[in-house]
């Protein structure tokens, strides 16, 4: 069979709109995931027994179940359980928030706790409250150590959006699937889809590399 470039040309507008949605879900999901992850990670690292247990349960629940099950639960089970109607897009973003949040929590906890204990003591010994020690002293050191594992998680989350094909969100993989079902040009379509994903993850990697270079790891 011959590789037909015109197939790609015709599919491109739809694929690009899919890619736009993929980016949107990833960005919104990661912003939320970072917020959730920081809170849960700090609860794990510095919270009292109760906060620690809550964060621990959340993290284990999410890490112990597949993301496809999580999004199906949010989209199909939640409406039945709690009478909440969610559209596919909301379900997709929520799934990334909840899922990435759990993994980011572990990254946050690990990097905060990896900072030498003496720095925390030196901050406290000046008479600072713990929150200021975390914000001004431990946080900036921990943040630099978080960048590589966070980058990894960002890429995983971006690729995870392809699984939302199961709830019919028109992201990149779904668009590819629909075009393929109409024209049966599997080679052209899945090559184009793969390259679009590579472009997105490649850009992410590049941004992270630059950020990492500009910050001295301490």
């Amino acid at each position: 069979m011959e590789f037909d470039w015109s197939v790609i040309g015709e599919a491109m507008p739809a694929l690009l709109s899919g890619a736009r949605l993929t980016i949107l879900i990833t960005l919104a999901g990661l912003v939320g995931g970072l917020a959730v992850g920081f809170v849960a990670g700090l609860m794990r690292a510095y919270g009292n027994a109760f906060l620690n247990a809550v964060a621990f349960a959340y993290i284990e629940l999410i890490r112990g179940t597949p993301i496809v099950v999580q999004v199906m639960f949010i989209y199909f089970a939640l409406p039945v359980l709690a009478d909440i109607r969610v559209n596919p897009m909301t379900a997709a973003v929520t799934a990334i928030v909840v899922n990435a949040g759990a993994y980011i929590a572990e990254i946050v906890r690990g990097s905060f706790l990896s900072v030498h204990r003496g720095l925390k003591e030196a901050g406290l010994a000046l008479g600072l409250p713990l929150w200021k020690v975390l914000v001004y002293i431990i946080g900036p050191v921990a943040f630099r150590r978080m960048i590589p594992p966070l980058g990894n998680q960002f890429i995983v989350s971006l690729k995870d959006t392809s699984l939302f094909i199961v709830i019919g969100v028109g992201e990149l993989t779904r668009q590819g699937q629909e075009i393929m079902a109409a024209n049966f040009r599997a080679v052209e379509i899945w090559s184009a889809v793969a390259i679009l994903y590579l472009l997105m993850t490649g850009t992410l990697t590049l941004i992270l590399r630059v950020t990492e270079k500009r910050m001295r790891i301490l």
């Binding site: 003496g118 720095l119 003591e121 030196a122 901050g123 002293i137 900036p140 050191v141 301490l218």
Partner: peptide, 9 residues
């Protein structure tokens, strides 16, 4: 402190 514990950043 024995180990100085200066803030490295």
């Amino acid at each position: 402190f024995q180990q100085f514990n200066l803030f490295p950043q």
